[in-house]
Amino acid sequence: MNVLKAWILPQVILGKSAVFEFEYPSNMTVLHATDDSKCTVLNGTCKETSSTCEGLYKPSLCAGHVNRQCCVASSTYDTIECTGNHRHHARGTAYYPDPSPEEGGYFDMRGFPLQTLQAYMKGMAPFVTVAMDSHPGIAYDTPVCIPELNRKYRKFIDFRVRDTGGAFQGKKFSRIDIYVRDRHDSYDGTINGPLTLFFR
């Protein structure tokens, strides 16, 4: 059995946001896309993750169940060690689903659900939400590559700057907050350490 986290909109349950976990059979169909066009535009191929991929598997670009993902060449998307025109050194922290102002809730700066690192690693999220200072010209949904975390998990992780907060004002590129599953995961030593940020 696997665990599926489902977002329940605020108005549905007692006027508050909530996250519920449901167990579901491993062969259950979980639709990530209505077709394979998002994969083919990257010159990728949709296939079972049990099959060999001469590159990287990227979730949420193929129709079908959770283990049917897009195989793209490493040069098409990115590599574990990261490439980019702009590199910065930052101190990492983590936040998690919680209604308190300190943790920031469940939705990003534009009202879309925050995506956790753990959901991404299970192929259940298209990217990982991170929060940074919005003032130095970092646009919403800007991709950022973090080699320290790619090495830890032995795969490329698609981090996206989609959130911010008062704690980041004036920090520019020196702080990054990574969205994780729960409080326990927020204590991860690699996340809460020096990180290198690559921007294209």
Rank of each mutant, 00 (worst) to 15 (best):
A139T: 09
D141I: 02
M124W: 10
L117K: 09
T49K: 08
M132E: 12
K172E: 12
D133S: 04
Y57Q: 03
A90N: 10
R110I: 12
K38M: 07
D133P: 13
G105H: 11
I178D: 06
Q118P: 10
R181L: 14
K122F: 00
H135W: 00
G92D: 11
V41W: 05
G123A: 07
L197N: 05
G92E: 11
D177W: 00
S26C: 15
P101E: 14
Q11K: 12
K58L: 13
G104N: 09
K171N: 09
G165H: 05
G166A: 04
Q115H: 13
P194V: 15
C53Q: 09
C82Y: 05
Y153K: 00
P136K: 04
S60H: 03
F159T: 05
V3K: 10
L195E: 06
D108T: 14
A6E: 13
H88C: 07
G166S: 07
F173R: 15
N150G: 06
R160A: 11
D163Y: 00
C39N: 03
Y77Q: 04
A94L: 03
P126K: 02
F159L: 03
C62F: 01
I13E: 15
I176W: 02
G189M: 07
R151Q: 11
T93P: 02
R160D: 06
V180P: 00
R151S: 11
I13R: 11
H86G: 00
G189W: 07
L117G: 03
N43V: 05
L149N: 03
A94C: 03
P101T: 13
A119N: 10
Y120R: 06
G170K: 02
G166C: 09
A125L: 05
H88N: 13
E48I: 08
I8H: 03
K152R: 08
R151V: 07
V130K: 04
G15E: 12
G92L: 07
T49R: 08
S17C: 08
R68M: 02
P194S: 08
T52Y: 14
S100G: 10
I146L: 08
V30R: 08
N43G: 11
V66A: 14
L14I: 15
K122G: 02
D78K: 01
A18Q: 10
G64R: 02
R162S: 10
R160F: 00
H89P: 08
T83R: 14
S134V: 09
Y96K: 06
Y153R: 00
S51I: 05
Y140H: 09
T129I: 10
C82I: 02
P25D: 13
D177V: 04
T196P: 12
P59G: 04
C71W: 06
V41H: 01
R87Y: 14
H88A: 05
Y57R: 07
F173T: 01
C62Q: 04
Y77T: 10
I13N: 15
P97I: 13
R183M: 13
V130P: 04
T45R: 13
A6H: 04
H89Q: 14
P25V: 08
V66G: 00
Y153D: 02
R200H: 15
N150M: 00
G111R: 01
D133L: 15
M28C: 02
G193Y: 15
T116Y: 11
T164M: 09
D36S: 04
Y77G: 03
